[in-house]
Design a binder for these strands. Structure first.
Length: 736
DNA sequence: ATTGATACAGCAAAT
DNA sequence: CTGTATCAAT
């Protein structure tokens, strides 16, 4: 980056053209004076535009240089989007700019100061699955009963502690159970330290602690980042907010830097990973925000869609308050389809999509949304059978596939052989005669000497010795070759390719391994062809990590996004979470049944239902012109047929906005389940799956029944009221 | 030590 | 239903 490009007077575009087309509120937000600000930006109100224009305006008016700002988002998608938009607004080189996700930026900072952060230069990142296996290992070593302490729960405990900014020594534990949890937490962290690995939450916590502890580093970044911009502020957790305050110099009491926070409390859908909507109110207080700028004009959706969204969200109690409006016309009504079952629902959706497509709508402008990933299978099947191209986001991601994780594990060992998780993954894969027995011995030696498994392995000869030799050979051969060549090396020298060639259904896996090499090539080219060298210094005088380490970090932090058929016009399939921030001409929201949306688990959590409602709000506001809401009377869930009643969120939309595509749901005959024998059939007046009404519990659906003619009890799912067993003799039920 | 079969548990969202 | 854990047989 040269001085020339950062000097404001060199820009051809005037600030007028930058600001053209903004409405008053947007303009106000973009041109706010030099102070911290909170922008309450409703869905579709031009939030990203405001954020990027604000950056461009600050740069163009010479208030800040591109190096002096830090912009943080939650998804890689959003970060990329921001950078692309910036480059179209300003002739600047965005390389070297600090724009990224919290995790990405913390990773970058920790790499640059790994010594001060007490981490090896090549520290690796544990993804969720790696973390779980690491926890299981610790627990085994500590002889903890995994019945009493389910590893998944321990994982949740550790992560939520870290999200709150707490280490094992600072958490309260008064009863034996929580004391044990704390002990596992402590041992787990020790193990991570020994192995030189960090989980997702650790990246943030470690970075926070580094800035807090090291005044030099802290001041360096505080002096550099005069402007901190935060997207999706409502999704920040306590630790992230503390981190932001530290960067802004707020925690030292002499606030020097400005935070420009953009958020929407109605779109807070990440409480499950520690997000605190309350951070918005705290921010308002802590930074003495005088006027919150509210962006309430929606430019995205027709008013029927927007009215439906507003109607839903007004049922939430805890809101900052905001009402979206649009000058667009009413548009089409919101379509509601009641399907007989999940397959019927999928077929309906596919037919509608085909018809939309025939009418000239791009498939990529149509999205199919669902609450949980598992729901995509039925739709995928239906799409596949009619040959409609589609893209699934989320689900099994590329870098999470078994064969890719194996290859990556070899690459991780080349970079950092102390990574026990990686070592354990591949020491006997492909099998080379190192079984449980030898591993136990190896772990015992490591434990006694308090070293990593690798160091213990160095003492071995025999089969373990030849594994050590293999890794060492890989390390030697990797010197001076390019990243894709390293990937190639990891897949061949390890024997992975040969192994999968011998497998019956190994072709896909081999194709994926080849894809990994292409991914490495793409990564290398995108990074201006840096070659592997231990460390390098970029034009800003910052340390650049080895390309291999960068690539491995990329693989952990950006597990998805890498799908075949990118440029092709294809229907978009994703969860509602993944759809946040996106918009489509037509949107299908499926599975709107009690138990699925709102998810049954949410009903047991504090404020769980409100979060589900926000999720629904996010889903609805993705649509520009056409919105379909569908639910099924029965669906295959967890391996068995489940009967559900329509989601309460459907009832929250005024009837006049809706167009019911099948006013009277088709009363199709239901299959008799094996358990309902023929002699009981006569005594049972209701069909399984039938909709019934009850004076006290309202609408429900018959799930099952038991007993004989004199004592027949039927089980009914009343949704909001829960599952009930009723004695037929007394229950007054009416058919619906 | 490896393999293959069978039992069993869990099963929401994502950096 | 599906991935993982366990166990008996090679």
């Amino acid at each position: 980056m040269t001085d020339q490009t950062t000097a404001p007077h060199t820009y051809a575009t005037s600030s007028d053209s930058l600001l053209a087309g903004l409405n008053n509120k947007q303009l106000e937000a973009v041109t706010l004076p030099n102070q911290s600000a909170l922008i309450l930006a409703g869905a579709g109100s031009g939030k990203t535009r405001v954020l990027t224009t604000r950056i461009a305006w600050l740069i163009q008016t010479g208030q800040i240089s591109p190096n002096g700002l830090l912009a943080v988002t939650f998804t890689n998608k959003a970060a990329k989007e921001m950078l692309t938009r910036l480059t179209t607004m300003l002739p600047i080189n965005t390389r070297g700019m600090w724009v990224g996700t919290f995790h990405g930026l913390c990773n970058r900072l920790l790499r640059a100061h790994h010594r001060e952060a007490l981490l090896p230069a090549t520290f690796q990142i544990l993804d969720t699955a790696d973390q779980l296996s690491a926890i299981k290992r610790v627990m085994k070593l500590m002889n903890v009963d995994d019945e009493k302490f389910p590893p998944k729960q321990v994982q949740g405990y550790i992560n939520s502690c870290k999200d709150e900014g707490m280490r094992a020594h600072s958490v309260d534990a008064y009863d034996p159970h929580s004391q044990k949890l704390r002990e596992i937490f402590e041992e787990y962290d020790k193990q991570c330290q020994r192995e030189g690995v960090a989980d997702f939450a650790e990246l943030l916590l470690r970075c926070y602690e580094l800035l807090e502890r090291d005044a030099n580093i802290r001041q360096h970044y505080q002096n550099r980042f005069k402007y901190v911009l935060v997207d999706e502020f409502q999704d920040t957790n306590r630790l992230q907010y503390q981190w932001l305050k530290l960067l802004a110099g707020h925690a030292q009491g002499n606030q020097r830097n400005c935070i420009f926070a953009v958020g929407d409390d109605d779109q807070s859908i990440y409480a499950f990973r520690g997000a605190r909507v309350g951070n918005m109110r705290d921010f308002e207080q802590d930074f003495a925000i005088e006027n919150i700028v509210k962006l309430e004009q929606n430019y995205r959706s027709h008013s029927n869609i927007l009215d439906a969204a507003n109607a839903i969200i007004t049922h939430n109690r805890n809101r900052l308050g905001k009402n979206l409006w649009t000058s667009a016309g009413a548009g089409e009504p919101v379509r509601v389809y009641q399907a007989y079952n999940d397959i019927d629902e999928a077929n309906f959706i596919v037919e509608e999509i085909q018809s939309l497509h025939r009418d000239g709508v791009d498939l990529s402008d149509i999205a199919m949304l669902y609450r949980s990933n598992a729901q995509s299978r039925v739709i995928e099947h239906a799409l596949f059978s009619v040959g409609l191209p589609y893209r699934v986001y989320g689900g099994l991601r590329f870098f999470e596939r078994a064969e890719i994780k194996h290859a990556l594990a070899y690459m991780r060992l080349m970079a950092n052989p102390n990574d026990d998780t990686a070592l354990l993954r591949v020491i006997n894969f492909p099998t080379r005669g190192i079984g449980a027995r030898s591993l136990e011995q190896l772990q015992e030696v490591a434990r006694q000497n308090d070293t990593s498994l690798w160091e213990a392995a160095l003492l071995n000869t025999g089969k373990i010795g030849s594994f050590v030799t293999l890794i060492k050979q890989m390390q030697e051969e990797s010197i001076g070759i390019s990243l894709p060549e390293v990937a190639e090396l990891a897949t061949t020298l390890s024997g992975l390719k040969t192994f999968y060639q011998g497998e019956k259904e190994g072709e896909d896996r081999i194709a994926n391994l080849e894809e990994l090499v292409s991914a490495a090539t793409a990564f290398m080219n995108q990074d201006l062809g840096l070659r592997i060298e231990q460390s390098d210094v970029d034009e800003n005088g910052e340390i650049v990590q080895s390309l291999l380490t960068q690539f491995l970090g990329h693989a952990s932090l950006e597990a998805g996004e890498h799908q075949a058929d990118v440029g092709r016009d294809a229907l978009q399939l994703m969860t509602v979470h993944a759809a946040k921030g996106l918009e489509f001409k037509a949107v299908f929201i499926s599975g709107l049944e009690e138990g699925l949306c709102p998810h049954e688990q949410s009903l047991y959590e504090a404020n769980g239902l409100e979060e589900e409602r926000r999720l629904m709000y996010v889903a609805v506001t993705r649509a520009r012109e056409r919105l379909y809401l569908s639910h099924a009377q029965s669906r295959m869930l967890h391996g068995q047929v489940r009967y559900g009643i329509p989601s309460r969120f459907l009832d929250e939309i005024p009837e006049e906005l809706l167009k019911r595509l099948n006013a009277k749901p088709v009363a199709k005959p239901f299959f008799q389940t094996a358990s309902s024998s023929s002699e009981q059939k006569s005594a049972m007046p209701w069909k399984i799956g039938q909709q019934v009404g009850h004076g006290k519990f309202g609408q429900g659906v018959v799930v099952s029944y038991e007993g004989n003619a004199d004592d027949l009890r039927i089980q009914i799912n009343f949704g909001k009221e829960g599952m009930k067993w009723l004695a037929l003799e007394y229950a007054k039920l009416e058919a619906l």
